[in-house]
Computed example of a mutant assay.
Amino acid sequence: MNKISMAAAAMIAGLTLATGAAAQDGGPGAAVTIELNAVKSGDAACTLTFLVTNGHPARIDKAVYETVLFDGAGQVDRLTLFDFGTLPAGRPRVRQFSVAGVTCDGLSRVLINGAHTCTAPGLADTACEAGLTLKTRTDIEVIG
């Protein structure tokens, strides 16, 4: 192997190690995305449907988010926990939560207040919160 080939091989090996370490630590681009995809009013309840994707290189075994629901006047209606369960790496999952005593028309905003529980062996302790991306496809605002 000539000097140029050896230098190129060393550089590629270094980049591979650095990229692997960044991915393991939840590096750039590695985050959880939560999208409020749909809402449906039912028998004195609102069903919130979320599309959630774990962008990390490893599975999250348990993700529970403290969630605050705001009424149409912008006042806190309730604080609750939404258990998104196991989130495989790089794969979307749909989760539904039925909230009794509220209609979807009565909600103006959903605040993801933070991760109550985040069990993710092999990832940083902040894997469920660092870089968290929030979206909505509804008239209800989602913030965090």
Rank of each mutant, 00 (worst) to 15 (best):
Ile60Ala: 03
Ile60Pro: 03
Phe50Ala: 02
Leu79Gln: 13
Phe82His: 06
His56Phe: 07
Thr67Cys: 07
Arg95Ala: 09
Ile112Val: 09
Cys118Gly: 01
Ala127Tyr: 01
Thr86Asn: 11
Val99His: 07
Arg59Tyr: 07
Tyr65Leu: 08
Tyr65Ala: 02
Val68Glu: 06
Thr67Lys: 05
Ala73Phe: 11
Ser108Cys: 04
Asp77Phe: 15
Ala124His: 12
Leu123Glu: 01
Thr86Glu: 13
Thr49Phe: 10
Phe70Val: 08
Phe82Asp: 00
Gly72Lys: 14
Ala89Leu: 07
Thr117Ala: 03
Arg59Cys: 09
Gly85Trp: 09
Arg93Glu: 09
Ala58Leu: 15
Ser108Val: 07
Arg59Gln: 14
Ala130Trp: 09
Gly72Thr: 14
Glu129Thr: 15
Cys128Gly: 01
Lys62Gln: 15
Thr80Gly: 05
Val68Thr: 13
Ala127Thr: 02
Leu69Lys: 01
Ala124Glu: 06
His56Asp: 04
Ala73Met: 07
Leu79Glu: 09
Thr119Met: 04
His56Lys: 06
Val99Glu: 09
Ile60Lys: 02
Ala130Leu: 08
Thr103His: 12
Arg91Val: 15
Ala100Glu: 12
Val64Pro: 01
Arg109Asp: 02
Val52Ser: 00
Glu129Pro: 05
Gly72Tyr: 14
Gly74Ser: 08
Asp125Leu: 13
Asp125Trp: 14
His116Tyr: 12
Ile60Gln: 04
Tyr65Glu: 03
Leu123Trp: 04
Val64Cys: 03
Leu111Lys: 04
Gly90Gln: 11
Gly106Asp: 05
